[in-house]
Amino acid sequence: MSTGAAENYNLKSMLSRPERLAPGHRMCAGCGATIGVRAVLRALHEEDRAVIGNATGCLEVSSYMYPYTAWEDSYIHNAFENAGATLSGVETAYRALRKRGRLPESEHFKFITFGGDGGTYDIGFQSLSGAMERGHDMVYVCYDNGAYMNTGIQRSSATPMFADTTTTPAGKCSAGKVQYRKDLTAIIAEHHVPYAAQTTFTRDFTDLHRKASKAIYTEGACFLNVMTPCPRGWRYETSEIMEICRLAVETCYWPLFEVDHGKWILSYTPKNKLPIEDFLRPQGRFKHLFKPENEHLLALFQEEVDRRWEDLQYRCAQG
């Protein structure tokens, strides 16, 4: 069984690989999702072919608008809630056709499916869980931008607490979303899949690349949760995405970790954990939290981030 050891990372050589996501798609200017997709696909070895799956969402409606497909590899979009099951079928067909000698021996395919948080945490959760449990040799990548962005920024179970969304608007009687977010990476790790990891964009993309490479080249069902900020929904300047990601990591709002064959590993520990306000302040969706009367909400947010961070540290210390 392949353990999917991460390849040595060299930005220059990785960027010299042919681009597998063509320009000309209709994602918004500054979109995080396609930055994430490009980074994941760069982890594919040049000689390997791929079939890409996609749940309905921004990425799907923008990347394959007939007759324009941005995908250089084979691609299948089916519906919103079934990216896991759909790619299960593709991967099973691969095994069936190989077994029956109907595909050339020399050709190798990898299977990667992308879903937004709505299609992954919520409506596609059952299909994802089924695919992970059955152990198809595939990678499910959640591009988590924390709301239903395609339909106009409605809350999902990935939306952070207190976020102002179109179905949890902040107002006279509301401070935004009431609940904290679901911890999907941990839930999928608890399926005891060979590899599950949480990542986002760092300066040279080492963390994302390493994890994508492990996920793609580890046999079995693997899961990546990639935080991909959305400038429209989060309301920050499009140019600031890398700083937003840095703050998510440095405040421990979005810790970088992996669960590799059952072993919980922290990928990064901030030297000085920043207060959560640093992550929240640049984003319009949290503007209401900075009114003087809402100071206690910031404290609650901080408390939850701390609790989860400690919990994660504990799990990783146990190995």
Binding site: V51, G53, I76, G89, S127
Partner: peptide
């Protein structure tokens, strides 16, 4: 599969493949 919805979804994936 874990549901009929997934049965037809996987069938669509497999047939397309």
């Amino acid at each position: 599969v874990e549901s009929e919805h997934s049965a037809m979804s996987a069938a669509i994936g497999a047939e397309s493949a």
